[in-house]
């Protein structure tokens, strides 16, 4: 049984939870309430007056071709970012786990990219792939491939996915590495005696034992790809070309702060809130049930 601490009075517990409640209230509940409130109005372009439209903003959004396209873009983007950040991380962690000498150096080097801010990472990749001066695009040109993510939507998507996932690999690596270290050695040895070779052992024993970590990273990475990739997209493509990298969060920004349509932008952030909420519920309800052994 879990041991619970009970307090005699109410003053101390209130003081203890007050900072968390205060921070949530200021940075989450208040803005969220504002967004819900704002989503019911259409302000004029100068922000001087606003007109109540009820659910009009939502109605407009759900029938809007561009908004639906943004949904699809977001889905593709977040699946790709999650895969590209988790699979190499797992692979690197498996390799690091096999190392005996120099594991510390290898680990440290692998963790560094996580320290790079998303916007800086975006600029870094932008320079490498710049169509005119980029090193990588120059080499691609030498190989006969004409790289131009400014015009080609697919290439733009590829670039923002790689730039977003790159720093995350370090983060995921850390968790996978720690999880691998906690897989009991004798279980692996038992599987070796049972006749399973390295990769067979990996897929039938190690991977299932990593599933709680994998699930945790899945949730965290999906949320990351939804919200925290803003900086990367803003610096590399600004949502272009032709909205091909405009994910929902970027659209909230561009419609609200660039297009000055605060009503629609608020409605979009409310939808985003609901989507992420649902996604997390689904993940916890259906996937988490299968990861406990």
């Amino acid at each position: 049984m879990e041991k619970r601490v009970t307090f005699k009075g109410w003053l101390l517990p209130v003081c203890l939870i007050a900072p968390q409640v205060f921070i949530s209230a200021v940075f989450f509940f208040y803005p969220a309430a504002q967004a819900v409130w704002q989503s019911l109005f259409i302000p004029d372009p100068f922000g001087l007056s606003k007109q109540f439209v009820g659910l009009g903003n939502f109605e407009f959004l759900l029938t809007d071709r561009f908004y639906r396209a943004s949904f699809l873009t977001t889905a593709i983007f977040s699946v790709l970012v999650t895969l590209v950040s988790m699979i190499p991380a797992l692979f690197l962690a498996v390799l690091a786990d096999r190392l005996i000498k120099g594991a510390g150096v290898y680990r440290t080097l692998l963790i560094w990219p996580y320290a790079v801010a998303p916007a800086v990472a975006g600029v870094l990749w932008l320079f490498m792939f710049n169509t005119r001066v980029g090193v990588v695009s120059w080499y691609l040109g030498q190989l006969g491939y004409d790289w131009n993510h400014v015009l080609n939507g697919g290439e733009a998507m590829g670039l923002v996915v790689v730039a977003s996932a790159w720093g995350r690999i370090s983060y995921n690596f850390l968790f996978f590495f720690a999880a691998l270290q906690s897989v009991p050695k004798s279980v692996i040895e038992a599987a070796a005696i049972d006749g399973a070779r390295f990769w067979r052992r990996f897929f039938t024993i190690v991977l299932p034992l990593l599933s709680p970590t994998t699930f945790f990273l899945l949730v965290v990475n999906v949320v990351y790809s939804f919200f925290e990739t803003f900086g990367v997209i803003h610096t590399i493509t600004s949502g272009g070309p032709q909205q091909s990298t405009t994910i929902l969060v970027y659209k909230v920004f561009s419609d609200g702060f660039v297009g000055q349509d605060l009503g629609s932008s608020s409605a979009q952030s409310v939808i985003l809130l609901i989507v992420v909420g649902l996604l997390t519920v689904v993940q916890f309800k259906y996937i988490e049930r299968r990861v406990h052994y």
């Binding site: 009991p184 004798s186 279980v187 038992a190 070796a192 005696i193 049972d194 599933s211 052994y293």
Partner: peptide
């Protein structure tokens, strides 16, 4: 020889059962 090719079976102190 690899452990699997030695025609042995081992019982470990902590049993080392596959938990899943």
């Amino acid at each position: 020889k690899e452990p699997m090719d030695r025609d042995i079976a081992m019982v470990f102190q902590n049993y080392a059962l596959y938990p899943h």
